[in-house]
Design a protein around this nucleic acid. Structure first.
Length: 956
RNA sequence: GCCGAAGUGGUGGAAUUGGUAGACACGCUGGACUCAAAAUCCAGUGCUAGCAAUAGUGUGCGGGUUCGAGUCCCGCCUUCGGUACCA
């Protein structure tokens, strides 16, 4: 019998599903282990070969843990709310729930095909009302709580109201955005609207003004993703920042805990440092500057109060609240113009721009509280509204960006730190001696900072403060396909929460998914839905993508529960995620939000752990090759202005002779599926281009008219242009999605699984290529042939030789170690070496092959199950016991040593492992090849690394 | 710009703690089997020179530490991910 996955795999797939082999119980005496994959967004392109990379790794680990005797929770579900389904609905009229369900069923069949050990009874779908009921419920808890800094946890808003009734807000220590102070009496006399406004400033889920990308021409709010260079990606219309009342989550209340608890996690240092930098804690001083002729003060935050004598101007973010109030009449036009310009710029553009700074003078002057000098107040796009206070004191002598700004606009620069005693120190280093700074002169920077902090406090112009780069999360989206807020507003715009028994608040059915007028969510079109509560209007915005994904790992513990997001018993048993596998693209966003929600639920006593994900592995992306031809621009009346070719090929001298100017490069043109038409140097010849265009290119908007292209002639007179090959994300729009089904139908799921692992380290990104898959396929057939010689079953019960045992136990050790460190590619190599060697020995012994079969089962679940049954078992190999490693089989009596002279290998020698270092040394010196290099020279030193190598240090 | 990661043969990659660079595969070359092909098996394969033994050289670039550096340090380059409304 020959290995034939087409026969084996469907049979076991069906059998395992029938007997619910992977069903997991919440009650068992076994130790628990929770392995989680980041759940996918079910896109219309289907699952591509990149998705399963992490799933296969986690599946191998889950199966390994099961064989080791753990009760393993390994679930899967769908992050089903999202923008693409809504856009598809706008284009086609197909309801997002319908397209999402279709995509999900496709994903499901693709996942099933690969043989994962998911317990599908625990599947979750974030867009399911039985799921988002609990997303809404958690939102309500956030709404009903504030963060108490004395207890350092979330506390019920009711307690806060009682405190206000007793003391106003004079005593309470909390995370808030309330600016004014009020007494108990004042509180009691406030209108319900006023009370609601104040409570909003304390709630963990609260409303404030936020900025969105507004596209007037499309009448809609755009995601950052949909904006390119200040224009909408669709249509190329102008986009500007627009202020809107938005829900926010007060994640900043948890900043300190999010930072400190990173230390308890087994995550990579890279990931932790990304999170630390994202939180961006800095200690400094809050400081108020008076403005000449105005009552308002400018609040700034600085980590360098010591440099205040060098603060020669101030910069406000163009969106700063004070801008319109302080702008002088003669600067008004310039300021308005500048604010309009900046509103078209993304935060990334604003931060990334270093060469060309921009700014405008407001006409106002602030007073430097220490020099009492008038300093001009400018606007600059490099100051962001949401970072710090949205205003800075600029010290051009000690900050690079301030320096560039001051130089450009001719602003005064005063040196305040002398770094001459610290050669090599940069502006970023907090070192040096203070100069030109009155009472600070001669002090070290560190001491000066401390002194200034105290001084600011005693002068009453500010205070020591800790600032975080982390910002409160914007939680509103003007979209249809997301969780509705369980919030209704009365006629005074006072927010009222729905009660828990009114949940889920379901999405209304719609036929038109276009945004409603004024950039409102499509929900505003469902007027009956909006007004379903007498005298109230429901919130029409929906929650963002991260809402449902911030707690889904808890739902898997008890997926069907209708009384709680999960029962206390289930959560008590499963506790937290032991191993989380997912992409680095989620390194900050999703992981930060999940950690925050988890800590909030911890404060409420609903989860027992302070962190949700103990250990985390980042899987790399599988990318695809993309092929591009550059658009070249020419200036010549006889030719079209745009041609396609490659700027590398353009000889500008020749062009100029012909009277054609090469004027630059436009955005490149994608040549989908062009691979088969390229030659070895990635050149596309004119002849091949025509073939390509007729067969494929014309379907992908590739221009067919060859005269529009810039052709280069090679020595043989062949005309061509060069195609650039790049690695890029797989996506439907790029037509580069590789479907795993195709690979599975050709080679089988076992082969697909092992090949994905064989491609390389799990955490590395790599392009998809099936070039090497034959090697894995050969391995599986070779493995099968150990059990079958030709047609006949050949397993015997005879006793294994020492060599056979050594091969087996070497493999057990290697594979086990490598699974534990998530190095699955080297596991596959180890299996290959093992099978190569057993094949060489014609080994067909049960005592070797049976344990090997269990060892291989997590990687190749189908072939091992088939062979397990043929070996005479009547329960699944996946319920077997992991083979034990026995070191006794690996004892070696000789060791092979490389012998090096001055670090270069000159010979190797086999030495008994019993020999002493001295004996080894003497032996090495007698070797012919060594003598050659040592002769006539002085041997200064002999280094023997036991079991590793011998090095002779020789001097001329 | 800022934060994080990666860069090793023609290709994917291995080298776990500073100790034989290129394991395991793909591809390629030659051979066996075959009427032929597929499959399978055997041998070779970093680069340069040489019939060969062998020598030199070699882990993105430039320096450094060390008996010894792919691995550690300093300075760069390129690519990828994130940058707060893609998921």
């Amino acid at each position: 019998m020959h290995y034939n996955p087409e026969n084996i795999e469907p049979k076991w797939r069906q059998h395992w599903s029938e007997i619910k082999l992977y069903k997991v119980d919440n009650k068992t005496s076994k130790p628990k282990y929770y392995v989680l994959d980041m759940f996918p967004y079910p896109s219309g392109a289907g699952l591509h070969v990149g998705h399963p990379l992490g799933y296969i790794a986690s599946d191998i680990f889950s199966r390994y843990k099961r064989l080791k005797g753990f009760n393993v929770l390994h679930p899967m579900g769908y992050d089903a709310f999202g923008l693409p389904a809504e856009q598809y609905a706008i284009q086609t009229g197909v309801h997002p729930s319908k397209s999402t369900d279709e995509n999900i069923s496709r994903y499901r069949s693709q996942l099933d095909n690969i043989g994962f050990s998911f317990d599908w009874d625990r599947e979750v779908k974030t867009s399911d009302p039985t799921y988002y009921k609990w997303t809404q419920w958690i939102f309500l808890q956030l709404y009903h709580h504030y963060y108490d800094l004395t207890q350092n946890k979330a506390v019920a808003i009711q307690d806060l109201i009682e405190e206000f009734e007793k003391n106003g807000n004079t005593l309470i220590q909390s995370a808030n955005s309330q600016e004014s102070v009020f007494s108990a009496t004042e509180w009691k006399n406030m209108s319900p609207k006023k009370k609601d406004d104040i409570l909003m400033n304390y709630r963990l889920a609260y409303r404030k003004t936020g900025y969105v990308n507004w596209c007037e021409a499309l009448g809609t709010v755009l995601a950052n993703d949909e904006v390119k260079d200040g224009l909408s990606e669709r249509g190329g219309y102008p986009v500007e920042k627009k202020a809107m009342m938005q829900w926010s989550l007060r994640i900043t209340a948890y900043a300190e805990r999010l930072l400190n608890d990173l230390d308890t996690l087994q995550w990579t240092d890279a990931l932790k440092s990304m999170q630390r930098n994202w939180i961006g804690r800095s200690e400094g001083a809050q400081l108020f500057f008076e403005i000449e002729g105005h009552d308002a003060k400018i609040e700034i935050f600085t980590t360098r109060p010591d440099t205040i004598f060098g603060a020669t101007y101030m910069v406000l973010a163009p969106e700063h609240d004070l801008v319109s109030a302080i702008t002088s009449a003669d600067q008004r036009d310039a300021v308005l113009h500048y604010v309009e310009y900046v509103s078209s710029r993304s935060d990334i553009d604003r931060m990334a721009e270093v060469k060309e700074v921009s700014g405008v003078f407001t006409g106002a002057y602030a007073i430097n509280p220490f020099t009492n000098k008038k300093i001009p107040v400018w606007l600059g796009e490099y100051v962001l509204k949401d970072y710090g206070t949205g205003a800075i004191m600029a010290v051009p002598s000690d900050d690079e960006r301030d320096q560039v700004f001051a130089t450009k606009f001719g602003l005064e620069i005063i040196d305040v730190v002398d770094k001459s005693e610290y050669p090599g120190a940069t502006l970023h280093d907090k070192t040096g001696k203070m100069i030109n700074s009155h009472f600070l002169n001669g002090m070290e920077v560190k001491d000066a900072i401390q002194l200034m902090n105290d001084k600011i406090q005693t002068m009453g112009i500010g205070a020591k403060k800790i600032n975080y780069k982390l910002r409160d999360a914007n939680y509103s989206r003007q979209r249809y396909w997301g969780e509705p807020f369980p919030i209704a507003y009365d006629k005074d715009e006072v927010a009222h929460a729905l009660s828990a028994d009114e949940l889920p608040l379901q999405l209304p059915d719609l036929e038109n998914f276009q945004p409603a007028s004024g950039g409102k969510s499509p929900l505003a079109r469902a007027q009956n839905w909006v007004h379903q509560i007498e005298g109230m209007e429901l919130e029409t915005d929906t929650m963002p993508g991260f809402a449902g994904s911030s707690w889904y790992f808890l739902r898997y513990m008890d997926a069907g529960n209708d009384h709680a997001f999960a029962s206390a018993e289930a959560i008590g048993y499963w506790q937290d995620v032991d191993l989380y596998v997912g992409g680095t693209e989620h390194a900050v966003g999703h992981l930060m939000y999940s950690r925050c929600w988890h800590k909030f639920l911890y404060d409420l006593g609903l989860v027992p752990t302070i962190e949700p994900f103990k250990k985390l592995i980042n899987q790399g992306m599988i990318t695809a090759y993309g092929y591009y031809a550059e658009y070249l621009k020419f200036g010549h009346e006889d030719r079209d202005a745009m041609m396609v070719g490659n700027s590398k090929d353009v000889n500008t001298d020749t062009l100029n002779d012909e009277g054609i100017n090469f004027t630059g490069v436009g955005s490149p043109m994608r040549l989908a599926y062009v691979y088969d038409y390229l030659d070895g140097q990635n050149r596309l010849t004119k002849e091949k281009f025509v073939e390509y265009h007729n067969a494929i290119g014309k379907n992908f908007n590739v221009i067919g008219d060859t005269s529009k292209y810039f052709w280069v002639k090679d020595d043989n007179g062949e005309e061509y242009f060069t195609v650039n090959v790049v690695q890029e994300k797989m996506s439907k729009s790029k037509h580069n999605v590789q479907n795993p089904d195709e690979v599975v139908s050709k080679y089988g799921a076992d082969c697909f699984r092992m090949y994905e692992m064989f491609l390389g380290p799990i955490e590395q990104s790599k392009p998809w290529d099936t070039k090497g898959i034959d090697g894995v396929n050969r391995f599986l057939r070779k493995y099968w042939s150990l059990f079958y010689s030709d047609k006949d079953w050949s397993i015997t019960d005879s006793t294994p030789s020492a060599e056979e045992n050594k091969i087996l136990h070497t493999t057990i050790r290697k594979v086990t170690e490598d699974i534990e460190r998530f190095s699955f590619n080297t596991c596959v190599s180890a299996f290959m070496m093992c099978v190569n060697e057993l094949k060489r020995l014609e080994c067909n012994k049960r005592k070797i092959l049976e344990p090997l079969n269990v060892l291989l089962a997590p990687f190749a679940p189908f072939i091992t199950e088939e062979l397990w049954q043929l070996l005479g078992h009547n329960t699944s190999v996946h319920l077997a016991t992991y083979p034990e490693f026995d070191a006794a089989f690996l004892i070696q009596d000789t060791v092979e040593y490389p012998v090096c002279v001055n670090g270069k290998k000159r010979d190797t020698v086999h030495i008994s492992s019993q020999l002493s270092q001295n004996e080894i040394q003497e032996l090495a010196l007698t070797m012919d090849n060594v003598k050659k290099y040592v002769e006539g020279k002085e041997v200064q030193k002999v280094i023997v690394v036991p079991g590793r190598m011998i090095n002779l240090v020789v001097k001329e």
